[in-house]
């Protein structure tokens, strides 16, 4: 076990400062600091505050991760960091810190893709990913279907959202319903008391001639806003649980149907779902039901590991070390729009 590489992972692509330690595919620690509360005080994200919060949280969070794992910096064999995609100023803090640690420790540095890391994190709980797998990444910023022949170097995009991300639709509908930010968990909770069949909301891009693996949630978001406005105009109460349940059902129906179709079309019988929206209880239940019916093995990380964290970056870094992928150059930069098919910045 101790001959497996110990990898220190840095994640700062958005609001969370995440530092994780992974040995081989064993999770040792996962320390997290968040600036969400600070942003709430300002009524929204302030980019400078996000960057500053990462800066202030960085060293204490690294120390906490080391203490939780019971290791010292000298034990670290490699350093991995999210190089993109994300907020440039936020990414830069993580990249600069990871480079400093790698240089000071004289260890290799791996600049990795945030999205591939959301897939890799599942290996910490469920072992080596079957390859090829289909991966579906659903979060506030992304909704993508990927074919993954080799997570360390070959990730192929099949489709993505053409307008709003799935998590963004949850956030915006939550605001329409007067629920707090981030909307996902609140919509999920409200929906438990609602009837998903009470309102027929549209399923975007599900026609015969529509792109089979692309998503569209903008029309759904508008339909929900209109439905609620009409109720309010009529002076009637808005049945929040029913709206939440019907909206959520429309999202997860499309997500799971397209994921299962991608598996079937590509002859792949393993599906992994990652990203913050993968913590949604109805998505997990419906995906599980439909995968079972289609003979597909479904893997989803536990909700705690679905949202942004440092362990996922360390998990992907560990995978790269073991696959013998070339580390990144010390001149590694942040790439806010890093393409999804670039797993890591080599050389």
């Amino acid at each position: 076990m101790s001959d497996q590489p110990l990898v220190l992972g840095f994640e700062t692509s958005c609001d969370e400062t995440g530092i994780g330690l992974v040995r081989g595919s064993t999770l040792l620690s996962d320390a997290l600091a968040t600036s969400v509360a600070e942003h709430e005080r300002f009524g929204g994200v302030v980019p400078e505050i996000a960057s500053r919060a990462h800066l202030e949280a960085m060293v204490p969070t690294v120390h906490r991760a080391l203490a939780d794992a019971g290791v010292t910096l000298g034990d670290v064999d490699a350093v991995a960091v999210t190089a993109g995609p994300g907020l440039t100023g936020a990414l830069l803090v993580g990249v600069a810190a990871a480079k400093a640690y790698a240089l000071a420790l004289d260890r290799p540095l791996y600049g990795v893709n945030h999205l591939a890391a959301h897939v890799a994190v599942d290996e910490l709980e469920h072992g080596r990913l079957a390859e090829p797998s289909i991966a579906m990444l659903v979060s506030g910023g992304h909704s993508s279907l990927l074919l993954v022949p080799d997570l360390s170097q070959d990730v192929q995009p099949l489709g993505q959202t053409i307008d709003d991300a799935a998590g963004e639709a949850f956030d915006k509908v939550a605001r329409v319903l007067g629920l707090p930010f981030p909307g996902g968990p609140y919509v999920d909770r409200a929906a438990r008391d609602g009837d998903p069949a009470s309102i027929a909301f549209p399923r975007g891009l599900t026609g015969q001639r529509d792109a089979p693996y692309d998503f569209s949630f903008s029309g759904l978001k508008t339909a929900v806003a209109r439905w609620v406005e009409a109720r309010e105009r009529a002076g009637e109460p808005v049945p929040v649980p029913d709206v939440a349940a019907a909206f959520q059902e429309a999202v997860v129906d499309v997500l799971t149907a397209k994921a299962v179709r991608a598996c079937r079309d590509h002859g792949v019988d393993h599906l992994v779902i990652g990203g913050g929206v993968a913590a949604n209880s109805r998505l997990r239940a419906l995906a599980s039901e439909r995968c079972a019916a289609a003979g597909i093995v479904l893997r989803t990380p536990s909700p705690r590991l679905c949202t942004d964290n440092g362990a996922m970056v360390a998990a992907l870094g560990s995978r790269l070390v073991q696959a013998g992928v070339a580390p990144s150059d010390p001149s590694l930069g942040a790439d806010s729009s890093m393409p999804i098919d670039v797993v890591s910045r080599a050389g």
């Binding site: 958005c14 994200v45 980019p47 995609p85 994300g86 907020l87 979060s139 506030g140 910023g141 993505q160 959202t161 053409i162 307008d163 709003d164 991300a165 998590g167 963004e168 956030d171 915006k172 903008s218 806010s336 729009s337």
Partner: peptide
């Protein structure tokens, strides 16, 4: 492109 909603990332170039 694709030009999609930048709500979460705040901005895209």
């Amino acid at each position: 492109g694709p030009v999609t909603s930048p709500t979460f990332v705040l901005a895209r170039v």
